[in-house]
């Protein structure tokens, strides 16, 4: 047997694959954060203190092939001296089940306020980083990544 007629994946096949997926995709993502959750997480971490955009550079790929392990790099512009250094950086998501992804703590002994990690992203979103300096000032940066969906979904 075996030599089947050749098939070009057409709209109907894609729909067939898609239908299965949409139903499945609905369950694991049944709870996810909204912008309001991100804002609340931010208030819990930093109160109502003003945040200025700038000094924080986030690198994320423009497109990630899935959200299981997306390379994140965050760097804060700081001399990292005893007088002037970054204390911590919080990484926040508006779409993951939990808005707070991670917090990184630095010291003058760090020498450089830069950290690379790999994060989970449940869908296309703009990740925000908020840096707290030793003088208490808060700075932020953000970056968007498009998270694509896999061809085949396996339960």
């Amino acid at each position: 047997m075996t030599h089947n007629t050749r098939l070009d994946l057409n709209r109907r096949d894609l729909l067939a694959l898609g239908t299965g997926t949409v139903l499945i995709a609905a369950s694991p993502l049944s709870s996810h954060a909204e912008q309001a959750d991100l804002d609340q997480a931010r208030r819990e971490l930093f109160g109502m203190r003003p945040v200025t955009e700038g000094r924080v550079t986030i690198k994320l790929p423009p497109i990630a092939e899935n959200g299981y392990s997306v390379p994140l790099s965050v760097e804060v512009d700081s001399p990292m001296t005893k007088e002037d250094f970054v204390k911590r950086v919080a990484i926040l998501s508006p779409r993951n089940p939990l808005p707070l992804i991670s917090q990184f703590y630095f010291s003058p002994g760090s020498g450089r306020a830069k950290v690379d990690a790999r994060i989970r992203m449940s869908g296309t979103q703009s990740i925000q980083a908020i840096a707290e300096m030793n003088d208490g000032s808060l700075w932020s940066g953000s970056r968007e990544t498009v998270v694509t969906l896999a061809a085949c979904v396996v339960l």
Partner: peptide
């Protein structure tokens, strides 16, 4: 027969 083509995001 269809390698190299897109299927959803892949």
């Amino acid at each position: 027969e269809n390698w190299g083509k897109r299927l959803r995001g892949d």
